[in-house]
Design a binder for these strands. Structure first.
Length: 474
RNA sequence: GUGGCUGUAGUUCAGUUGGUUAGAACAUCAGAUUGUGGUUCUGAGGGUCGUGGGUUCGAGCCCCAUCAGCCACCCCA
């Protein structure tokens, strides 16, 4: 038996139907919000990708081997002792890599096409990305991202737009989700407020694990990472506040709305003004104030000051969306990046974007039975093949049906009727048409309704109309 | 990169303290009416028990190694 690489998948017709349902839904909504499509190549130059995703991210980039025989060509011989390290070697044998996400290639695209773009630029992009991760539940080495970004605008209204897109997408898919909202500036303010801003990264990474490992483990980790005891104690007080709040919320005393408010109040009290942290709180207040103008029925929005997100380039708002009724990682994530185009030579352009993980959304919809059936199959009639003598009549009937806009096919072999009917049945084709010797003599066709088993014999001219009318009854 | 679990037919799984020729269900194909599917009945094909080694008179079962898959950590969609 052949096989396919770890973490990749084949998609069968039934799965494609469900996947297209997701792609069609997000695409429809993206367009409705004014986003324009672009595509970029599957592979990028390695320098474009490296250094954007953090150390861990860099390791997960799939590299493409250069063509040619490196030993034969003698290229490797020019590297002497000291220089012979894996970094040097890999730059010699590989200069391209598969894209890791759609945001970094987009930033590269914006810089390259800056003169053709009218800012602010709203783009959507639906393409696969690759990560050399170890596969597990909801995690693949090849998967599709559905990205939208607004670049060239500082306005927080863009964040609000993105939140509405999230609500629209998940309400269209009938899926209840929680949108977690935070701001990198608040995280920085928090690090500053406890007097450990030099440990910003370590603090956010530890904080991010709160829900998974609990209060104690986070405090332990902070200590292990070399953060001073008095700073750890201040953080512990904050964590206690969060935990107490969780308990009240479980008891139904705090709604997620009040939740967000009380967290903002707490942080306002411990932050010095003016500071980056306070700026973050102002931004968060703005979002919370203005999202009230919109209905959020399927997405519950919550300010979660422990949300970190690892991608290095985020500088402001960050988002993460998780399903309420299923265990799965994040279904959607994103944030604001103030200087991603700067690394490609075009500074001062801020962008904000999110990415929907189509594969994870598919898995969740599948487990919750929310994928509509048979959205792709559109053949409504199959003609039975009776053999050479009846072929002329069958082919002209086939053409006539298709001309009338009816999806139709002729069974290709003169097989037993049982087999031909079983094929139609398996393919959920609603009508089977028979024109054998007797029917042809009278220019008639027998039409069998496969759902109720009824069969009528009508003239050739009536067939299209009959099928169209009968189809409307279902 | 680290750890855990599982590998028997296309799929889901049985398989006794190690004992003759490894089973079932579903799926597939064929037949039960030479012009009628879904239900029923009959039959057939399909396995080097992941792979390699070891223990034993004898291994699907025990031991070692290896590979693959799944799950968790890390990180993320």
């Amino acid at each position: 038996m052949p096989s396919i690489p770890k973490g990749t998948r084949d998609f069968q017709p039934a799965e494609m139907s469900g996947r297209n349902y997701i792609f069609d839904t997000v695409k429809r909504i993206f367009k409705n919000f004014g986003f324009l499509p672009i595509e970029t190549p599957s592979m990028e130059n390695i320098e474009t990708l490296t250094g954007k995703y953090g150390d861990e991210g860099d390791k997960l980039i799939f590299r493409i081997l250069n063509s040619g025989d490196f030993v034969e060509s003698g290229k490797l011989k020019n590297i002497s002792g000291e220089e012979f390290n894996s970094k040097k070697l890999s730059s010699l044998i590989s200069e391209k890599a598969l894209r890791y996400d759609l945001t970094v290639p987009f930033a590269r695209y914006v810089v390259m096409h800056r003169n053709d773009i009218v800012f602010p630029f709203k783009r959507y992009q639906i393409q696969p990305v690759w990560r050399a991760d170890r596969p597990q539940k909801g995690r693949f080495r090849e998967f599709y991202q559905c990205d939208i970004d607004v670049i060239g605008s500082d306005s927080l209204l863009n964040e609000i737009e993105l939140l509405q897109v999230i609500e629209k997408v998940f309400s269209s898919l009938n899926l209840k989700v929680t949108i977690k909202l935070n701001n990198r500036k608040i995280l920085f303010g928090l690090a500053e407020a406890i007097g450990a801003s030099e440990h910003f990264t370590q603090i956010t990474m530890a904080l991010d694990k709160l829900e998974k490992v609990g209060e104690k483990a986070v405090i332990e980790e902070l200590g292990q990472r070399g953060i001073k005891p008095d700073a750890v104690e201040k953080m512990a007080a904050f964590l206690r506040f969060i935990s107490n709040e969780k308990i009240s919320s479980d008891l139904g005393i705090l709604s997620s709305d009040n939740h967000s408010k009380s967290r903002l109040e707490y942080l306002t009290n411990i932050f010095n003004s003016p500071s980056i942290g306070v700026k973050g709180l102002e931004e968060m207040n703005f979002l919370i104030k203005h999202i009230k103008s919109f209905k959020f029925d399927f997405a519950e929005i919550e300010f979660d000051p422990t949300l970190a997100r690892g991608l290095d380039y985020y500088t402001g708002s960050i988002f993460e969306v998780i399903a309420k009724d299923a265990e799965m990682g994040s279904l959607c994530g994103g944030g604001r990046y103030d200087n991603l185009t700067g690394v490609f030579g075009l500074p001062g352009i801020s962008g904000v974007g999110i990415s929907f993980g189509a594969d994870r959304i598919y898995e969740v919809l599948k487990t919750l039975n929310l994928i509509p059936e048979n959205t792709d199959r559109c053949v409504s009639a199959m003609l039975v093949n009776f053999g050479e003598a009846e072929l002329e009549f069958a082919l002209s009937l086939l053409a006539q049906l298709r001309e009338a806009g009816i999806g139709a096919e002729l069974y290709p072999d003169n097989a037993k009727l049982k087999k031909q009917f079983a094929y139609a049945d398996a393919g959920k084709i609603p009508f089977v048409l028979m024109a054998g010797r007797d029917e042809i003599l009278e220019k008639k066709v027998s039409v069998k309704n496969m759902q109720n088993g009824e069969q009528v014999t009508i003239t050739e001219d009536e067939v299209s109309e009959y099928i169209i009318n009968a189809s409307h009854q279902f």
